[in-house]
Design a protein around this nucleic acid. Structure first.
Length: 823
DNA sequence: CAGTGAGCGAGCTTCCGCTTGACTT
């Protein structure tokens, strides 16, 4: 019988397929790309028609070697990588690296891992699509050229180690421009009028006026009219409405919904989804497809019918519509829809699974049906009308199990039930209230809403959304932070049933923001620089434009090297000219003149961060500098704030004979006391801080440090057990090992018995093998690999023996050699 | 890293997209 080797991208997939295909097939995974451009240099021979110089990825040499031995044993190699640009390229690279030709290999694709789908794929192999591979090469080379020519330009013109790229630079631009919009936003007040009416039979009805007033005077005029007005129901309109369920999850929608409903950052969502996928609970989590397999549709239908009844079931086939979607996978769904919950999962896994399952089920359920009622109320002496809108749920449909959460920018008003009332009925005012409402500034991006925007623009791929967010933060172009709100007064004018008008002023908190993405100074400076010189690449449609070209290449209508040629030369020319002609970008801003010295005051980026400077760099001998406070930025700092900063360092006073000094250091504001530094919380005002407060800060910090110090808890088997707080949280230290404690544990509070329990449980869980010959000898596993534990010491197992089943003698030999080496 | 800030210059940094483990207190 002939031998077959199937190569897929992911090892989890490989396992399942191997089970399906049986003993004539060996299934291996490539773990994604195996070859790429070199990491150290550009790796493209530009003068030789952009010939790429691919290298085997350093962490893939082992896999390649394994694949090579399998290839030798096999008669036919089935290349079963994903059916998209990247997948096709992986197959091509594999053919090149493994030295397999057309005669020995077959390219197959399938969209679901089922017996029938895989058998169908095996029966219908095709040739490798070299056009698609070329489209990928063009994508890869373009990204490399852009990234590796723009970044060095930034090193010279802005700051070393910065980066720029087709995707990340646009992501930063979105955030920078949102912040500019918010800054430029002028909030204007309007008066919104809401009335409460009564009618016979104790009916109470709330309605809103269809116009909003700009001024208090207009409200006065209107309320005056209301005093003598008659109110009648002019029309009652009923309308049937429905709501359709949202489609099943893609990577992007999963990230958004998990952020809204579960408060997960996108990285956490992806990590948990990966765990669920590896445990076999869900389908692949990096996808842009909303498609569900026939099998999934059928089992969902069956489950919904059995569980909720036939009326709740509605089979829906979704089509993917997002830009640049490549549909290599299904939507994210449970592998077995009738599995209501997972076993042995933590709460994060349980909650994410539940979310995915309910969303999938909901997508196969009936519409929710409502009856919407509009009641229009006329005034006898005015043009304006009041309207009341209400909604009654007639049939819950998919809402029985799932409601999609909304972003703050698109939150809808909840509509209640309206009392039944007929046309022509007379109403009596109980209260008419005008409330001053300010127009809302644009909302800052959250991680998830940025992902949504990027997806809308067709920028980035499911596998890169989470890394993009982390890259732009790692480069410190963007921070995820909170914004303090402020109180704003607003007016309320109320006309009561006895025709008196009361005017009051209330306060509301506005501008408060939590976990939002905001640009840093360096983010602003780099963005402004790129916008000035590389508008084309910063254009939100740049990716969409090149994607069209990639499509042409994939269809064989355009040669990839030609496309790259056309892009590169003008781009490179611009790089050269910018290098020659542009000033170094420091984001320098002239704030005004210092009244005491008469010199110019600037805010700018210096070697170690943002500073304010008094005097001109070129002409003045002595310049004065100060760092900025947390929350201040070059873009927004005012002259007054800058001048204030030069009052630092400031001596607050003395405590027990020693000076307390406040200043801004490299890690932020600090108190200096007895030659020790204590960082001051962000919101504290250094210019009005008191001696008492400083002493408090010092005491708090001292207490905290005390709590983190290692504490000896006691002894277990004659060996000391201690607890402390490290960089990764609290832990127990025992005989050369670390045992993780839950996040908020205080070392001093850990009881000996609890510590011993943790040690025993963890050791038990991690014991791979124990020996009858010697009770003290054990083979243990750690995250990093396996090791031998023997009499309160540990010994590393050599790499060569790591996968062997070690005998007692083997272990003793390892211990002996380790001890000898030590000597 | 609790000072520096300018400029010189060796030698470093950098892209996007596909996948999983490897880091360690």
């Amino acid at each position: 019988m002939s031998k077959n080797l199937v190569i897929v991208e992911s090892p989890a997939k490989a396992k399942t397929i191997e089970r399906i295909l049986g003993k004539d097939f060996v299934v291996k995974s490539s773990m994604g790309h195996v070859r790429d451009l070199p990491q150290k240099n550009i790796g493209i021979d530009i003068t030789n028609q952009f010939e790429p110089n691919y290298e085997i990825l350093s962490n893939k040499t082992k896999i390649i070697n394994e694949l090579k031995t399998e290839v030798k044993k096999a008669d036919t190699i089935w290349l079963a990588t994903d059916e998209d640009r990247e997948g096709e390229a992986i197959s091509w690279h594999l053919m090149e690296v493994l030295g397999i030709g057309k005669d020995k290999s077959k390219r197959i694709v399938f969209h679901e891992i089922t017996q029938t789908a895989i058998e169908h794929a095996i029966e219908n192999p095709r040739d490798l699509n070299i056009d698609l591979v070329n489209a990928q090469q063009a994508r890869r080379v373009l990204d490399r050229l852009v990234g590796f020519e723009l970044s060095p330009l930034l090193w010279k013109k802005v700051k070393p180690s910065l980066s720029a790229g087709r995707v990340q630079s646009v992501a930063v631009r979105l955030i920078v421009e949102k912040e500019k919009e918010i800054q430029a936003f002028q909030s204007t007040p309007m008066f919104r009028v809401v009335a409460t009416f009564t009618s016979g039979n104790n009916i109470v009805l709330q309605a809103e006026l269809n116009t909003r007033f700009k001024t208090e005077k207009e409200v006065d005029v209107f309320l005056e009219k209301c005093k003598s007005a008659h109110f009648t129901v002019a029309a009652v309109e009923k309308q049937a409405t429905k709501k359709t369920p949202p489609p099943p999850f893609t990577t992007s929608t999963l990230q958004q919904e998990a952020a809204r409903k579960l408060n997960f950052p996108v990285a956490r969502t992806m990590m948990i989804a990966q765990q669920l996928y590896e445990a076999g609970y869900i389908t692949y989590m990096r996808t842009d497809s909303v498609h569900l397999s026939d099998l999934a549709l059928n089992t969902a239908k069956k489950y919904i019918t059995e569980e909720y009844g036939k009326t709740y079931s509605k089979t829906r086939n979704y089509r993917t519509k997002s830009k640049g979607a490549q549909e290599a996978h299904e939507a994210i769904r449970p592998t077995y829809i009738d599995k209501a919950s997972i076993e042995n999962g933590d709460s994060g896994q349980e909650r994410l699974y539940d979310l995915i399952r309910k969303r999938t089920l909901a997508s196969q359920m009936s519409d929710a049906e409502f009856e919407r009622t509009h009641i229009s109320i006329h005034l006898s002496n005015a043009e304006e009308k009041f309207t009341a809108v209400g909604e009654v749920l007639l049939f819950d449909g998919f809402l029985k199990i799932y409601t999609e959460s909304k972003d703050e920018s698109e939150e809808e008003n909840m509509l209640g039930k309206l009392p039944s009332i007929h046309q022509g009925a007379e109403l009596y005012k109980q209260e008419i209230q005008a409330v001053e409402k300010y127009s809302q500034a644009p909302y800052r991006y959250t991680e998830a809403s940025l992902v949504r925007k990027l997806e809308e623009l067709g920028i980035g791929r499911p596998s890169t959304y989470a890394p993009i967010i982390s890259t732009i933060q790692k480069r410190q172009y963007v921070v995820k932070g909170n914004k303090e709100g402020f109180e704003r007064p607003y007016k309320v004018m109320t006309l009561t049933s006895d025709n008196t008008v009361k005017k009051t002023v209330k306060k509301e908190k506005v501008g408060y923001d939590k976990a939002k993405l905001m640009p840093t100074d360096i983010g602003n400076i780099v963005n402004n620089f790129l916008m000035e010189y590389f508008k084309e690449i910063m254009n939100y449609n740049f990716t969409a434009g090149v994607e069209m070209k990639f499509d042409e290449i994939a269809e064989g209508k355009l040669a990839w090297k030609e496309m790259i040629h056309d892009f590169y030369y003008p781009f490179h020319e611009k790089i050269e000219s910018t290098l020659k002609n542009s000033e170094k970008a420091k984001g320098e801003r002239l704030l005004g003149i210092d009244p005491t010295s008469g010199k110019n005051v600037y805010a700018k980026l210096a070697r170690y961060g943002a500073v304010v400077q008094i005097g001109d760099t070129k002409t003045d001998e002595k310049l004065k500098f100060s760092k900025l406070l947390p929350g201040q930025s070059i873009e927004t700092i005012t002259l007054e704030e800058a001048l204030e900063l030069f009052k630092l360092p400031r001596t607050v006073g003395t405590y027990e004979g020693d000076e307390l000094i406040v200043n801004i250091g490299p890690y932020g504001p600090y108190v200096l006391y007895k030659k020790k530094y204590y960082s001051v919380p962000k919101q504290e005002d250094l210019f009005s801080i008191t001696v008492e407060r400083c002493v408090e800060i010092i005491a708090e910090k001292t207490k905290k440090d005390e709590a983190k110090k290692p504490v000896v808890i006691g002894k277990y088997k004659d060996v000391e057990v201690s607890a402390a707080v490290g960089r990764y949280g609290p832990y127990i230290a025992y005989s050369g090992h670390f045992y993780k404690l839950s996040a908020n544990t205080i070392p001093a509070d850990v009881k000996l018995q609890d510590a011993i329990d943790i040690i025993q449980q963890t050791d038990k869980k991690n014991t791979v093998k124990s020996f009858t010959e010697d009770k003290d000898l054990k083979i243990m596993k750690a995250k990093t690999g396996k090791y031998i534990a023997y009499k309160n010491a540990t010994y590393k197992i050599p790499r060569t023996q790591i996968n062997m089943d070690l005998s007692y003698e083997d272990c003793m030999k390892i211990i002996q050699t380790a001890l000898q080496k030590k000597k």
